[in-house]
């Protein structure tokens, strides 16, 4: 399977999602709706297959009635936002000190070999994107990785295998 890379990749938002976005905006006082931008970017990124195209960002600017550059500025500053297409699943492995002390390097290498992908890359079949992350606040339970909203902790090669199988079987929520 190949990922379709198109610039016109604006997600179509359901009425339910639009209501959710309105709910986020209403959490801020009148005239301060720009404050909602980060959370809205999280929502639309999920709807858009796990990444933000310029087109998707323009849509957020329209929703909030702000300049597109104000959205680009934010999307490029925060590391959670993907500005390029990603795989069905993203593994973000923590690489920071405390996790390194308990073997995160080995886990990263294991995943690289197992999936034949380098950090920053996506597997040829478009299934997995491998990224590293800085401390995710799970240092006592490392090595760990985040996939979707979930943390997978105390990782071993066997646990990584299980996770990959679960993804392949579609048991875990995918980006698209």
């Amino acid at each position: 399977m190949k990922i379709e890379v198109t610039q016109k990749s604006r997600p179509v938002l359901s009425a339910e999602k639009m209501a959710e976005i309105q709910g986020v905006i209403s959490q801020f006082p009148e005239g301060k709706s720009k404050s909602a931008v980060i959370r809205i970017l999280h929502i639309v990124e999920e709807e858009a297959g796990g990444w933000l195209s310029p087109d998707t960002m323009d849509m957020v600017a329209e929703i909030l009635n702000i300049q597109p550059i104000e959205v680009y500025e934010v999307a490029t500053f925060y590391t959670m936002f993907n500005l390029n297409p990603v795989g069905k699943y993203i593994f973000e492995v923590c690489r920071t000190g405390p996790c390194m002390l308990v073997g995160s390097d080995n886990i990263i290498e294991y995943i690289e070999n197992k999936l034949d992908v380098k950090v920053g890359g996506t597997t040829a079949d478009g299934m997995f994107t491998l990224k590293t992350a800085e401390c995710l606040g799970a240092c006592g339970y490392g090595p760990m990785l985040q996939c979707g909203k979930h943390y997978h902790e105390h990782l071993t090669p066997a646990k990584v295998d299980e996770l990959i199988d679960a993804c392949r079987k579609g048991e875990i929520k995918a980006n698209f």
Binding site: K34, S35, R39, E70, V74, F77, T79
Partner: peptide, 22 residues
């Protein structure tokens, strides 16, 4: 309100900027 992945937003004035959507 969630952030978007940035250690610096723990610094209180960066946190405020971020909460203002910047």
């Amino acid at each position: 309100a969630p952030g978007g992945g940035a250690y610096i937003c723990g610094e209180e004035t960066a946190l405020i900027e971020s909460l203002e959507g910047k």
